[in-house]
């Protein structure tokens, strides 16, 4: 701890925590400095946001409510917060709406990225995660400084349960209509696919997988595929 830049060490620890690899010592260090250094908290917040975008989590619907909730919680805790002096409360007032604005703008950017990618012809290689982070994250990173001023009450600020891998199954296949000349991509995609169509797709995918189970040498892999979307595939 005596060697190396103090700030670098903190950043390193923060990255480690982000990756779930922080040691007990690092955690203590972060908790200790987190409440004192706004920069650190801000960085954490940005990391989380960027990670969310990269994981393709829907930042849009979830975050504004969450941010409001956090803001309310901070409001309630404010009297206990010895650090939030004049500047802190000023940031509270001025900072909240840009925070919200930034978030929703980022979310719109991310959503747009999905839509744009869905419209692209080369569909076997869509990488919404990457694109989302390219479009969404830098912007968020650039504009995020405002909000975090107010997030004085750490350790609670550090506790963000962030699952890294989603284990939710998606029943419905992702649909991509053939692009028609003259029809804007957006309008085509926004239409909800007819239930009849999804049922048909589920049915043929299941029938295909069942059949593939005994003409290929892949063992039971096709059977693993045959069970997705089963609820709809009757």
């Amino acid at each position: 701890m005596s060697h190396g830049s103090h700030q670098d060490r903190l950043n390193e620890s923060l990255s480690a925590l982000m990756d779930g690899e922080a040691t007990e010592l690092e955690l203590q260090r972060l908790l200790k400095h987190g409440s004192a250094e706004g920069d650190l908290a801000e960085r954490w917040s940005r990391y989380q946001l960027a990670a969310s975008v990269m994981r393709r989590e829907q930042v849009a619907p979830a975050m504004p409510g969450l941010a409001a909730g956090i803001a309310a919680a901070i409001e309630a805790e404010a009297p206990l917060d010895v650090h939030s002096g004049d500047s802190g409360s000023a940031a509270n007032d001025g900072g909240r709406s840009p925070w919200m604005r930034t978030l929703s703008r980022g979310a719109v950017a991310a959503t747009f990225a999905f839509a744009a990618i869905l419209g692209v012809q080369q569909l076997s290689q869509p990488q919404p995660g990457t694109a989302g982070s390219e479009v969404g994250a830098p912007q968020l990173a650039a504009e995020a400084p405002q909000p975090v001023q107010q997030s004085a009450p750490q350790p609670s600020g550090f506790y963000v349960p962030a699952p890294t891998t989603r284990s939710v199954s998606t029943g419905a296949p992702r649909l991509v209509p053939e692009r028609q000349p003259g029809v804007p991509v957006q309008t085509v995609i926004q239409q909800a696919p007819p239930a009849e169509l999804i049922r048909h797709l589920n049915r043929v995918m299941i029938q295909h997988s069942q059949q593939a189970g005994h003409v290929s040498t892949q063992g039971m892999v096709p059977f693993a595929r045959a069970t997705y979307g089963e609820q709809d595939g009757q």
């Binding site: 649909l175 991509v176 043929v204």
Partner: peptide
């Protein structure tokens, strides 16, 4: 048009 689920395309 196409529908994609994992490695399976329709």
């Amino acid at each position: 048009g196409r529908a994609i689920r994992g490695a399976t395309v329709a």
